[in-house]
């Protein structure tokens, strides 16, 4: 199928872009334009793949695990590509971000690309709004975790050498905090849009189902991380560890719950 050929080609371009980014950090070269071009080309093909599948099935990429992974690899790559393009100073963080995306790319290659059926409760514009806000949240968190990874790597001599061209830890920490703040806004919007959708679809705005509970926990953990910064004037290292903690909880929410549960949202099927 053309959609799969497009997707696999896009993944290859992402992997080449990521590998080039990692090599540029290790060997202290600057093939940044090449990396950005490869990312953009991969995104173009990936967009075509998602659009082709959407046209064929009549619904967007949010039903099966394969579709959830595909759409999130796309949105995360887009978020990071924008950060890579607009914030040249932090381009080296690609060496941290891309391996995370490689894990998801490996996962999607093992996922069943078969068709899924769209539950009737998914026929609502609030689904798009809810998912859209969630993707912005996760994208912002991914950029933050890239910066946090750089700060934490710098605790080692190797990391210090690899990431010497990036701004100092305090500056990276400030940027990560900004990303987390954006993430908090969009996670909040995602929860509200999800509650509106749930009220329409299942007659209740909140029911503590697995995905609601984990999404709320992510919001709480993010709130705790932001509050801890204000309360304790944290060092960049501690701040970075909190960012990584938030990202892990968010990752479990976005991919762990749909992977484990057949009905992550009560009544979804």
């Amino acid at each position: 199928m053309i959609e799969l050929q497009l997707l696999w080609t896009a993944l290859v371009l992402y992997v080449v872009a990521g590998s080039a980014a990692i090599f540029s950090v290790v060997w202290r070269r600057r093939p940044e334009r090449l990396v950005l071009t490869l990312m953009a080309a991969g995104l173009a093909l990936h967009t075509a793949s998602i659009a082709t599948r959407w046209e064929r099935l009549g619904h967007g990429p949010y039903v099966t695990m394969f579709e959830i992974l595909s759409s999130n690899i796309w949105s995360l790559m887009l978020a990071f590509a924008i950060a890579f393009w607009r914030l040249p100073a932090i381009r080296g963080s690609a060496a941290v971000v891309m391996p995370i995306l490689f894990i998801m790319m490996g996962w999607i290659m093992m996922a069943d690309p078969g068709d899924g059926s769209l539950p009737s409760s998914y026929h609502t514009v609030w689904l798009f709004i809810h998912i859209g806000f969630g993707k912005v949240f996760l994208g912002a968190t991914l950029v933050a975790v890239g910066l946090a990874g750089v700060i934490l790597s710098r605790r080692t001599a190797l990391g210090l050498r690899w990431f010497e061209r990036l701004p100092e830890d305090v500056r990276l920490d400030d940027l990560a905090y900004r990303c987390m703040a954006i993430g908090f806004i969009f996670e909040s919007l995602m929860l509200v849009a999800g509650a509106i959708w749930a009220q329409d679809a299942w007659g209740r705005y909140w029911a503590w189902d697995p995905l609601e509970t984990w999404a709320f926990l992510t919001w709480l953990v993010l709130g705790i991380a932001l509050h801890a910064r204000v309360t304790y004037k944290l060092s960049p290292r501690t701040g970075a560890m909190l960012v990584v903690g938030v990202f892990i909880v968010a990752f479990l929410t976005f991919f762990g719950v749909p992977f484990i549960s057949t009905t992550p949202h009560k009544g979804a099927v």
Binding site: R86, L87, P88, A89, D174, L175, R178, A181, I182, F184, I185, S188, L189, V192, I196, Y205
Partner: peptide, 26 residues
Amino acid sequence: LLAACLVAIGALGAHFWSKFANKPWN
């Protein structure tokens, strides 16, 4: 509830905006 949520998010957005606007990202 919806109104309170939207006011909360809007106010938080305004707070972060004023906090970050003074110093450019780059």
